[in-house]
């Protein structure tokens, strides 16, 4: 007896969002669940952006810090290294040094860094603040102006500070990353608030908040899966944005990614363990719908690209 394929057809579709000017990337555009090309259209592969910071990665675990020895002292050399040596398809510049508890760099310094990095690369740039609610409003506004015309992704706009960041993206023609905390309703609400300001919903990327393998990954996974199902099955136009997985920052913060084997004997060798933590976090969230992934270790990125090759 022949097997009757139980295909699903969905009424909704994920928006296609493009970044960059010289070299560009496009995410989204699919009308099916992740990689379900057997029953619909999956026009674009997920994109992995290499994370670069405005200050040296002193707080990164050795496994991933040492990969950037000699280039990470300066965001420009670091970004160029990722683009030229690691073939990064995008760079995610995190302005973590602007956080008041960190180096407390000013918005002007951040803007200067953005300009320098943009001058040095031709792949699309994702600009991230330090997730400090007040400080990000000045930092991201300055960054958006400094990057005017470069079609960047800028974030993250939170419910508490989205207005100024949305206005800056509108004025300077950028795409926007909106983040809410692990709740499908909050995510929908923020998307609505942002579009009510006149921001085009098709220029929006949703970050439902990442969590690392073993540390809440199940929550992020299910929120992403539910957002994507709402987009496809209910044709909910406020939920049809592509989704971001801010993987590296969460995965490399947990004990399993940094504790030596002597402290965590059940975890075996540290180096592949750290890389696997980032890789598996990304791989799982990609199956739930993340299609822009921000990552740190080149080996994690390499493995994930091979996985995507097999899936496409």
């Amino acid at each position: 007896m022949a097997f009757t394929a139980p295909n699903e057809t969905y009424s909704g579709k994920v928006y296609q969002v493009e970044a960059g000017t010289e070299k560009t990337f496009v995410i989204g555009g699919e009308n099916v669940l992740p990689f379900h090309s057997f029953e619909g259209n999956v026009p674009n592969r997920p994109v992995i952006a290499y994370e670069v910071q405005d200050v040296p990665p002193e707080d990164w675990p050795d496994t991933v810090k040492k990969v950037y020895d000699g280039v990470s002292g300066n965001p420009v050399t670091w970004a160029k290294h990722c683009q030229d040596k690691l073939n990064a398809k995008a760079i995610a510049l995190r302005l973590i040094g602007t956080h008041p508890d960190r180096e407390n760099r000013s918005a002007e310094e951040a803007a200067a860094t953005v300009k320098e990095v943009l001058a040095a690369i031709n792949v699309p740039l994702i600009i991230l603040g330090s997730n400090h609610i007040e400080k990000d409003t000045s930092v991201l506004v300055a960054a958006a102006e400094a990057a005017k015309g470069k079609n960047c992704f800028i974030g993250k706009a939170l419910e508490e500070n989205y207005k100024t960041i949305v206005a800056a993206c509108l004025a300077n023609n950028h795409k926007l990353i909106a983040m809410s905390q692990l709740d499908i309703n909050l995510s929908k609400q923020l998307n609505i608030l942002i579009t009510q300001m006149g921001f085009d919903k098709e220029k929006l990327v949703t970050d439902p908040m990442c969590s690392a393998l073993g540390y809440g990954l199940d929550y992020t996974y299910s929120v992403m899966e539910r957002i994507r199902l709402a987009a496809l099955t209910q044709n909910d136009v406020t939920m049809q944005t592509p989704m971001l997985g801010d993987i590296g920052m969460y995965a490399w913060k947990v004990k399993e990614a940094s504790a030596p084997e002597s402290e965590l004997p059940i975890g075996g060798s540290l180096e592949p363990r750290g890389i696997a933590w980032e890789t598996v976090t990304a791989g799982a969230l990609m199956m739930a719908g993340a299609e822009l992934l921000i990552m740190r270790h080149p080996e994690s990125v390499k493995a994930l690209e091979k996985f995507i090759d097999e899936l496409m």
Binding site: P265, G268, S269, V280, G283, A303, E310
Partner: peptide, 30 residues
């Protein structure tokens, strides 16, 4: 590392048994 990802696919998408070629402790933990 790719094997680890294929196994992850099995976990998330409906496999009841995933056959692996090796069981290093780091891979098991992940």
């Amino acid at each position: 590392m790719l094997e680890t990802l294929i196994a992850s696919l099995g976990i998330t998408k409906y496999s009841s048994i995933v056959v692996l070629s090796s069981v290093e402790r780091w891979k098991n933990l992940a």
